[in-house]
Computed example of a mutant assay.
Amino acid sequence: MSPELVSAEPLLAARGLTRRYRGSDVPALDGVDLVVGAGRRVAVVGESGAGKSTLTRLLLALERPDAGEVTYRGRPVHPGRPRSLHWFRRAVQVVPQDPGRSLSPRMRVGEAVAEPLRCLRVAGDHRARVAELLLAVGLDPDAATRLPNEFSGGQRQRIALARALAPRPEVLIADEPVSALDAAVRLQVVDLLREVSDAEGVALLVVSHDLGVVAALCSDVVVLAGGRVAEAGPTDRVLTDPVSREAHALVAAVPRLVLA
């Protein structure tokens, strides 16, 4: 792993992650190392089939690797009973690719945002926390009384972000956070992710195919290819002067969103 990616205090780390699915001769992941340091914004990029989704599931302890280990602040993280992972779910939250599917159409926004607080047994005034979060993501606190289908796609992504921030995590994993949005709304959500990361001191791991988003949001980037890390380093260097053949091909081929 590039030394630039481990300069900050390590929070979420993967060492030697390998995952092979039944019926496939090629591993989905093969010895992947990754470190997300405190307050850092790291991107994972790669073509379809590079292993990004598998890596995300392993980092979230939704699947068990065949080899290697995920740790949080040095503590091993393994899939298990929900209650045994409360400590990890409070520390690491995910912003989903499609908030329309992650938000129940029958659950009012305030209930949805407060759900992690209830499930993880976070103490405090949940109603006040919901109002604070809605304001933080640019929504009126009155939105708490409405249903998700009353909002636009960009607004639903803001709700999903508020929900992920509810338990005060130290790391957010954003899985293609703007891919379902139009260009103008993407700009707003990218700006919001940056602002929230700075204001809350939250580290980001952004999984994306959009190099424009990566360039605008992340200080470091990891390029996956064929389930392995092909290259890792500062975003500016990797995107303008890639060393590996895989990174060269990705920079040349992947459509980019131009961000101001």
Results as ranks from 00 to 15, higher is better:
S197L: 05
G154V: 14
V221L: 12
A128V: 00
D98M: 06
N149T: 11
A199K: 14
D210N: 04
P148F: 05
R121A: 14
G110H: 04
D198K: 12
R108E: 12
V196P: 00
L204C: 04
V206C: 13
L135Y: 04
L147E: 08
S208V: 03
D198N: 11
H209Q: 13
R194K: 15
V178G: 05
L192D: 12
R146C: 04
E200Q: 15
D191P: 03
E170I: 02
R186L: 07
P116L: 14
A164M: 07
Q157A: 13
E170P: 09
Q157G: 14
L117G: 08
Q157T: 14
V196A: 00
S179C: 11
R194D: 15
D142G: 11
D182E: 13
L165I: 11
P99S: 13
A143W: 02
L120T: 01
L172C: 10
G226T: 14
A144M: 07
V196Y: 00
V95P: 00
A230W: 02
V222T: 04
E111N: 06
D198H: 13
Q97W: 07
V229D: 08
R186H: 04
A215L: 07
R101G: 08
R158N: 12
A112T: 12
L193C: 09
Q157E: 14
A166S: 13
V178D: 12
A162Q: 03
V223D: 09
A143Y: 07
L217F: 09
N149H: 15
A184S: 15
P105C: 12
R158Q: 10
S102F: 08
V95T: 01
A144N: 03
L172D: 09
A128F: 00
V137L: 11
R129S: 00
A166F: 10
G124K: 08
R106M: 06
A164P: 03
V202R: 01
D98V: 03
D210M: 02
R168T: 15
L135W: 04
F151N: 08
A183P: 14
L139C: 09
G154W: 01
